[in-house]
Design a protein around this nucleic acid. Structure first.
Length: 306
DNA sequence: AAGTACAGCAACCGCCTAGTT
DNA sequence: TAACTAGGCGGTTGCTGTACT
């Protein structure tokens, strides 16, 4: 009855990932794409829970991840989206290509929360703290779409955060535009607000339409899973090194192109080793010399042979 | 230089939902 | 339909690096 247990927790490794583990996971996913996470540890030789593998991949190893701090624009988007969605980090992350829910959650807790508090905004309600009074808000704003809390919050944010211009954000444009459009509608304030929300959603979707989305990562059926050729023979560094340390030494782990175990002619995904360049760059940041010595064969890729 | 406090973030935990048998 | 699990999600923890005393 039902499925088999996710994983038997006895003997599973916990804690920070090692370079060796990273390479096993990358190798496996490069060969097989994302499939059932439960099977990945066994098939890739990892002593990790499937959940742990999924987390490591989605939060750290995915080649499409952006690195570094959130830009002002991204931060503004997070604030806007948080005002709309609350602590639904995955939903928020889905509107920020290359950013993960964990990353956004961490950034919120460590940076944005403090920033908002400093600016007199309650990070939970997005309403001004007691120090902000209506006197500080131009009367014409308060008079505009009456009782429209969202509109007020936007204006308050404009006042408090002049360095982040709302005009630069398509979301805010849509909100303000829409509110203005509804400006003459004195009959139903709820309608005004709903309209804003919907418009924000559709605008965000539009923005993301041209961006690579991780949802596009193809899934394969269990019977299509390939167990990668043993990588044990490839030289590797100490497995005790930190995952965020020198992985480039382990670029050796990425077998030479002719050694790469591509066996499935039905692959539908097109990641190639170059897609991991930024990941490797990030992991190896202070080993640029080594990076420069690595040549990537542009012609090497998984072919779509249907 | 050593000790302490704090900040940032990767990873884990536990709950929930949707899917499978 | 019930029993059960995989995968996803949000909250939390704890490790590591940095700033301060």
């Amino acid at each position: 009855m039902g499925r088999q247990p996710c994983c038997d927790k006895v003997g599973l490794k916990k804690g920070p990932w090692t370079v060796e583990e990273d390479k096993k996971l990358i190798t496996f996913i490069l060969n097989n794409g994302q499939c059932c996470w439960r099977a990945i540890p066994k098939l890739s030789g990892l002593l990790r829970c499937g959940k742990s593998c999924r987390l490591r991949w989605t939060n750290y190893l995915r080649p499409d991840l952006k690195r570094g701090l959130l830009s002002e624009y991204e931060e503004k988007m997070v604030i806007d989206l948080h005002a709309q969605l609350g602590n639904r980090w995955s939903k928020i992350a889905s509107h920020l290509p290359g950013r993960t829910d964990n990353e956004i959650k961490n950034h919120w807790n460590t940076h944005i929360k403090k920033k908002l508090k400093k600016m007199g905004i309650d990070p939970i309600t997005h309403k001004p703290l007691s120090t902000i009074t209506n006197d500080q808000i131009p009367s014409n704003i308060l008079e505009k779409p009456e009782n429209n809390q969202l509109y007020k919050q936007e204006k308050i944010q404009e006042i408090l955060m002049p360095q982040i211009h709302i005009e630069s954000s398509p979301i805010d444009q849509s909100v303000v535009t829409d509110v203005n459009l509804e400006d003459d509608d004195d009959n139903n304030n709820n309608t005004t607000r709903m309209s804003c929300t919907n418009n924000v959603e559709s605008t965000i979707v539009e923005v993301n339409n041209n961006v690579f989305c991780t949802d596009e990562v193809p899934l394969i059926e269990p019977h299509e899973i390939l167990v990668p050729n043993s990588q044990e023979s490839t030289p590797s560094t100490s497995s005790t090194s930190s995952s965020s340390s020198n992985i480039l030494e382990d670029l050796k782990f990425l077998p030479s192109f002719d050694e790469w175990p591509i066996e499935n002619n039905n692959m539908e995904f097109g990641w190639e080793i170059n897609d991991f360049r930024s990941t490797l760059d990030f992991l190896l940041d202070d080993d640029s010399d080594m990076m420069n010595n690595v040549t990537f064969d542009e012609s090497w890729k998984f072919e779509q042979l249907l």
